[in-house]
Write a protein that binds this DNA or RNA. Sequence first.
DNA 1: ATCAAATTTCAAACCGCTTTGGATGGCGAA
DNA 2: TTCGCCATCCAAAGCGGTTTGAAATTTGAT
Lengths: 343, 343
Amino acid sequence: MNLKELAQQLGLSPTTVSRALNGYPEVNEATRERVVAAAKRHHYRPNTRAIRLATGRAFAIGHVIPLATRHEIMNPIFADFIAGAGETYSKNGYDMVLSVVADEAEEQTYRDLKSRGTVDGMILHAPQMDDARIPLLAAIDIPFVVHGRATGAALPYSWVDVNNRRAFQRATEFLLDLGHRRIALVNGLENMDFAIRRRTGFTDAMVVRGVTPDPSLMASDEMTEVSGYRAAQRMLDRAASPTAFLAASMISGMGVRRACEERGLVLGRDVSIIIHDDDLSYMKNGEDVPIYTATRSSVREAGRLAAEMLLDIIANPAVAPRQRLLEAELIIGQSTGPAPARV
Amino acid sequence: MNLKELAQQLGLSPTTVSRALNGYPEVNEATRERVVAAAKRHHYRPNTRAIRLATGRAFAIGHVIPLATRHEIMNPIFADFIAGAGETYSKNGYDMVLSVVADEAEEQTYRDLKSRGTVDGMILHAPQMDDARIPLLAAIDIPFVVHGRATGAALPYSWVDVNNRRAFQRATEFLLDLGHRRIALVNGLENMDFAIRRRTGFTDAMVVRGVTPDPSLMASDEMTEVSGYRAAQRMLDRAASPTAFLAASMISGMGVRRACEERGLVLGRDVSIIIHDDDLSYMKNGEDVPIYTATRSSVREAGRLAAEMLLDIIANPAVAPRQRLLEAELIIGQSTGPAPARV
DNA sequence: ATCAAATTTCAAACCGCTTTGGATGGCGAA
DNA sequence: TTCGCCATCCAAAGCGGTTTGAAATTTGAT
């Protein structure tokens, strides 16, 4: 059942039916009701493809996911971000189109998405320092919002990000307050912008308190269980082993914990761990009492906000770039305690 | 730059240009080359929206993700499945559209996706027993492939699944061979079809060897770290505590391990754990030597295969439903060993 | 040189909707 | 009674491609 047929059924022109259904004022209320009723009765749904061609809009948002190198992105937090963004899209009648492409095809994918008119806007994931994709998207001239920020970007752009620097600064201060001095940072890959900011927060806090950060207590790798484990292993086996760890994610924190427990260390007593908790739906940090002390910020919420921001930009293209900086909570759990006395 | 403009530039009709670019035979080779060159020169990309309307095809596949109840789906394996499927789509010029919707809107979403012509086919995720979505999609009359199977479905349908029953049967046999008798099953939610099959494999193996499965050693819950932890905790605190665990996922296995290690049990010596390993990109089961003994099957590969199957069905709609049963490998890691003698 | 067949190209219809620019009719004001 | 203004509806022209049916041109055989 399409518009023409429905119009015929009603003895009306397609014009009027279209207007009635789309809430235009120049149609008699009685007529509108008739049309709406008939549409419902016949389960009429306007054809998306036709609407898109006629309006020149895609009613779709693109997310490009590079396959390999940047596969950091294909990590657990991605699913939750997508869930949050997707929620916003379906609430607003937008589709989410995901492009999973080989790394070298990423740039071309952005260009195509624009020039073929497949989407009205994009979300940019996992920005790196001086990320080339930001000037690219700006040049392509399509609305976009970055999840995160990229240090070194020349032009202003819209983003939603967690205050990673502040979060890790506070976490570090918290550990320092507990008397810890040999604090280790098990960071994500430091070509990722968020990892750089976290490191800054960490070293800033240390320096302010007159503690010189020990480079051998700073690791940077993918945020997997195994790499967290390996980093902690290395550090714990040194002469001056750390009394506390800052881990970049729940998963790498699990690896750190494994290394600690293997050595008979009790969490919160012999060694402290603070993780960054993205508040993932399937990976809760405990229930009533958090397992880990953590800097927490919901990545799902970030997804929602980024999507809202993007739809808003699409609706009001003239406005200046928007930014939204989210503060992480510092949640006290069972994995931290005073620095052990005798070390 | 659109088709008409390009045609004008070339002094040709849009018809010929379209045919030249789409590889139709009724166009002079010399002309085709001219057209292709000009198209490249002007960075011409045919408008997706127009193609879709003109051909009556969406060149897109839908994945519907319900938000809450079935949020089992929004779990780490989802991201990898999506990555696999997305790879196949972009290789074939298809888009992937993800709909994240409230549970109660799921059925309507399927109907809409079909009647609005937004997609040419769908992938159905996380089937449950007697899943109502399968007859629904069949009735809607749109090509679809199920990731998993649904016991109790009346009509045949296409699916890609792991042989979960067999995998867990083999894992159980392996533990029995090591002398274990009190084996615990930390299963996923047993309204999920895969969980039912895994349980069957587990109990089958036990019964064949003359061991009666102990219902209090079978837990069924979401596959989170915490719930794995709690289940193991309960079981370990019983008089006749298990000497081995079968865990439904890497994450719940981590919870089981935490409970074990808290009690000073050494993995592979005091207690054995086998997990099911979906071979997630960011959650490797160790590197050279697997941490956990595991039944392994790449969910990413499953995504690839399901997508290929679906595209094939769309291209050849007349053919009977296809099925693809993947066997999981049994990988020996460090988390299993002979049953402790003195228990 | 002639004509039928094959090759190459094109004009126009179409996909299903939106939207522009009237047409129509009813109404109150003059 | 007449005119202008609303309120309401409609025909037709897009949107940017694909595809049908026919025209123009070449080719090949006679």
